[in-house]
């Protein structure tokens, strides 16, 4: 959870740059007219609600705002790593940078394990059938797992 003191809204120029990166990495060509906020460590959240930026600012003056919208992706070395839920939102319109894993690999991945795959270095959306499972970072030989601990299957 991220404390949203002094809310940092993403301005339209920065939004364009983010969209370009999304297009370059995953072929995603449209961003909805959500409000985007940056919450530290390059994490970007999207808010689909009806409040305007001014209203959110006004809200933050009378309430301790802790969380706005949904964590979508993180900017790392000018590349974007989609969150588990961001991969579900953007994954369907992505036409590159998507790795389809099989059932066995999925069972490894969702438990926090890496997957052996020879791919170009970079960030990939991981999916199994219709399930989007976040992003993995390829070092050329394997996809390194980024499923957060609380979203992994625990071995009983």
């Amino acid at each position: 959870m991220i404390r949203e003191s002094n809310i940092k809204f993403i301005k339209s120029g920065e939004k364009k740059r983010l969209l370009n990166t999304l297009k370059e990495q995953f072929g995603i060509s449209k961003l909805k007219s959500w409000i985007f906020v940056e919450t530290g460590k390059g994490k970007i959240r999207g808010f689909s609600g009806s409040m305007t930026r001014d209203e959110i600012d006004e809200l933050s003056e009378i309430a301790n705002v802790e969380v706005i919208g949904l964590y979508l992706f993180r900017v790392e070395n000018n590349r974007l790593r989609l969150s588990m839920d961001g991969s579900g939102i953007f994954g369907e319109s992505a036409n590159n940078g998507v790795v389809d894993i099989d059932e066995n690999e999925m069972n490894v991945w969702i438990r926090g394990g890496n997957i052996e795959r020879e791919l170009e270095n970079g960030i990939y959306i991981i999916k199994n059938g219709d399930d989007f499972l976040g992003c993995g970072i390829s070092d050329g030989k394997k996809l390194i797992n980024h499923v957060p601990k609380e979203r992994r299957i625990r071995n009983g």
């Binding site: 999207g46 808010f47 809200l59 301790n64 705002v65 969380v67 919208g69 949904l70 839920d85």
Partner: peptide, 15 residues
């Protein structure tokens, strides 16, 4: 917050 994330809730502000 963890439940809002897991459920993909985007129209909520938690205070």
């Amino acid at each position: 917050s963890a439940n809002l994330e897991r459920c993909g809730v985007m129209n909520c502000i938690a205070v």
